[in-house]
Design a protein around this nucleic acid. Structure first.
Lengths: 199, 199
DNA sequence: CGTCTAATTTGATGACTATCTAATTAGAAG
DNA sequence: CTTCTAATTAGATAGTCATCAAATTAGACG
């Protein structure tokens, strides 16, 4: 699930997670209503209702149509129904987390190959190596130019095999080198590795 | 849909309508976590996470188990899944409106003096007491005859002062007693339905 | 045009709440 | 018991947001 999807889901819950608005949903599910009617039914002033409806229209949850002198508001029933289908499935929920902290597989790799700030052992699998390398490269600042000496100094805090790690980070395009100077490259890959948290 | 159901639905949306908490849902859907882990992953302090988890536990959305020195939190997946199926069906939405018809003042009193199924504190004002008492009397069936013991049993689930509550319900004509047997009286004073508002 | 009504926008206010630090509690482990 | 760690509670603060009154806009209709 992309960040975008997470965001719109969050917005939906925010919108219906308000007493007045949830009641509006209920009222509109029964019958279309004008702003003034809703204000009467909810015992609120019109500006307040207008405000709520604006939020709901913004989401696509309600639609409005001008009829004579009033504006009739309807619930976009398909909106919520379509949403409910797979919304709360376990998979969907699990996807939520990816948009937050990177995926579960990466965390698992990190947990098994790291011990605190030390790399216990370098994974044999190419893909798992990448997870570790992405974790390691985070120890370097962007837009800082490191000498090979400084680079090794930092790597050594996490694992003794500085030569292999240095070369691998460059091979995987996490760092670049020119004339003996090294710098960190931007993460073109989407999800940065999550820090290891239980260890 | 009962007032109560509306309320708990609203609470659910409130709880997951918050960025940090929605992320927690996502994280726990993948893997059980301690408070400290969540704090790290979310980049929040532990008290903050603790606060969020308390709200979620209160709803039954997550459960906690002490393991060694940490408390492991899990998502109650069935909770959301069970909810999602028919939750947003047209009929269900329409039912929401029934709970809208009640008096706004009453809802406010209920919200401030109740905590879930517990009465936090008995209001000092006579009118507010009535609101609470009407809520309490709904815990009893019509046309069932309760012994004083049974009556107290039920009242105690909501507040310890059974004597006062029992007497008050009778004073306010919500219940009747004869020869040590109690029964619920019909609501003669129903809240007036909202008048027709358009035309 | 001018007037009337419904709705929206603006700006202010108060309530709520997410978050933090500091203090406290609860358990585990020595 | 004492010490250490994780978690919760308490208290304070800041930011968000629901609500309202006042001002403004948008149409309808004569």
């Amino acid at each position: 699930m992309e960040q975008e999807e997470f965001e719109s889901l969050l917005q939906l819950f925010k919108v219906i997670g308000n007493e007045s608005r949830l009641r509006i949903v209920g009222l509109l599910a029964n019958q279309e209503r004008s702003v003034g009617e809703l204000a009467t039914l909810l015992d609120l002033k019109e500006p307040t209702v207008s405000h709520h409806l604006a939020l709901m229209k913004n989401l696509g949850l309600v639609t409005a149509e001008a009829v004579g002198n009033v504006r009739i508001h309807r619930l976009n029933a398909g909106f919520l129904e379509g949403m409910s289908k797979e919304l709360f499935s376990k998979e969907k929920l699990a996807d939520l987390a990816d948009s937050v902290t990177g995926d579960a597989r990466e965390r698992k790799v990190l947990r098994s190959f790291l011990d605190g700030q030390r790399i216990k052992e370098i994974p044999a699998q190419y893909k798992k190596q990448l997870v570790i390398l992405r974790w390691l490269v985070e120890k370097f600042e962007f837009s800082v130019r490191y000498s090979e000496r400084e680079l090794n100094e930092i790597i050594k805090q996490h694992h003794p095999d500085t030569a292999w790690l240095r070369r691998s980070m460059i091979d995987r395009k996490l760092m670049a080198r020119e004339k003996g100077v090294y710098w960190r490259l931007p993460d073109d890959a989407r999800s940065p590795a999550a820090d290891q948290v239980r260890g």
